[in-house]
């Protein structure tokens, strides 16, 4: 076996969740699932269910990324924002490297606004 590209693309938690859920549904109908695949899909879905991706949908993520284009953020920074949406300035500081230099206070506020608009927090909390 050979790995041609270690990192061909990034996936956000939502995408992984969708794929695994489909896999779960389709294999359950047909025949018994393979042991290790069943274990890892179950555990991963279990983990992802507790994250915010449960409430997300493809359109809102797309719109969010569209809106984020005007800020000069890297791909991984935006990915992290989708996976763990920042609700406070502190969380943005963690996600964005040297955020003080790269984002002004207004921009930070704008980012939080956009996060709350497109990736709203779950109602439960």
């Amino acid at each position: 076996m050979e790995t041609t590209k270690v990192n061909a693309a990034f996936l956000c938690n939502y995408e992984v969740m969708q794929i695994l859920q489909q896999l779960k549904d389709s294999t359950q109908k047909k025949h018994k699932r393979e042991g290790s695949l069943a274990t890892v899909t179950y555990e991963t879905v279990h983990y992802l269910q507790d994250t915010e991706c449960k409430k997300q949908n493809a359109q809102s993520i797309q719109k969010f990324l569209e809106a984020m284009k005007k800020f000069k953020l890297t791909k991984t920074e935006k990915l992290m924002m989708v996976n763990t949406p920042p609700r406070t300035e502190l969380e943005i500081q963690l996600i964005v490297q040297e955020s003080e230099e790269r984002l002004s206070e207004d921009e930070v506020r704008k980012v939080i606004e956009l996060v709350n608009e497109f990736l709203p927090p779950s109602e439960v909390s």
Binding site: M1, E2, T4, V6, N7, A8, A9, C12
Partner: peptide
């Protein structure tokens, strides 16, 4: 945290 890896196998 998840990525796609391209692989080749027989």
């Amino acid at each position: 945290m998840f990525v796609l890896a391209e692989m080749k196998d027989v």
